[in-house]
Amino acid sequence: MLIVLPPSETKAPGGAGAPLEFSRLSFPSLNPVREELVAALSALQVEEAMAQLGLSERLRGEAEANRELFSAPTMPAVERYTGVLYDALDAATLPDRRQLAVGSALFGVLGADDPIPRYRLSGGSKLDRRTMKSRWGASVTEALSEVDGLVVDLRSGAYQQLGPLKRAVTVRVESVLDDGTRKVVSHFNKHHKGVLARELADKRADSIDDVASLAEAAGMTVEVISDTQLTLVV
């Protein structure tokens, strides 16, 4: 099983790893596009990057970080990304992270322990007037299609579009409101996907029913909607 997480806009600074080496990244078939994107992003002057990526003055430091992609220190991808989902995942305490991967606008998809620098590029960004979807084409889908076994795709919509995989199990998180209706709430969606990923990280699942059973064993309320879709009710 491979669990594909969404990335986050916020990323931990620093790192103790050697600078970026594409040969150390998982899914090597993605390296040609990765190299092209990293070169294009790092070549942008700060003002140009802020304009192309739609960054405010408050985020100038992130545009500056993009200039150092080839020289900045790295850290494992699953530790680089921060925020609600990654707080719930608490990857540093997981005994085994080999079943975790992370979707990325810059790198396509990464293994949890792939060493990457801090960067700023979103799934909805345009770089030199080209969308990330057009740049990645079918390459992310093809890379994920080569994964043996079940793929649980927890990416958000923008990142699923960069590499959709029809056979993957997707998860929707619905919060129950006071009047009994349900709604997708961003905070709870991210938190509970992180909790689910943590529960699945060191387990075996060969089918959507296995995923549902593991979630239920962890105390979650789960509905199997179809052969490829689960709903967590929170």
Rank of each mutant, 00 (worst) to 15 (best):
A158M: 11
L110V: 04
S186R: 12
S56W: 10
A43L: 06
K203F: 05
G180S: 05
P117E: 11
K126A: 15
S156P: 07
V4R: 00
R155A: 09
G149R: 08
L177F: 03
G14Y: 03
E48L: 12
Q99A: 10
S226D: 03
Y86F: 12
M132L: 15
R130D: 11
A91Y: 08
S226W: 03
L100F: 03
H187Q: 15
L41W: 09
Q229P: 02
S56M: 13
E36N: 14
A63S: 05
S56N: 12
P117S: 07
G163A: 04
G123W: 00
V169H: 06
A101Y: 03
D114N: 06
I116M: 11
A205F: 01
R172P: 02
R155L: 11
V151K: 09
F22I: 07
G103R: 01
L30R: 10
V109I: 07
T82I: 15
D128T: 15
P13M: 04
L2C: 10
L41P: 11
G163K: 03
S29L: 11
P95I: 12
A65E: 08
I116P: 04
T131Q: 10
V147S: 00
M75W: 09
T181F: 05
V78R: 01
V171S: 01
V151D: 06
H187M: 15
R24D: 14
S213E: 11
P76E: 06
V211W: 02
P13I: 10
S42N: 09
R182C: 12
L94H: 13
V224W: 04
S156Q: 12
D87A: 15
A217H: 12
P13E: 13
R198H: 03
V224Q: 13
T82V: 11
A112V: 09
M50P: 07
S23D: 14
K133G: 14
Q52K: 14
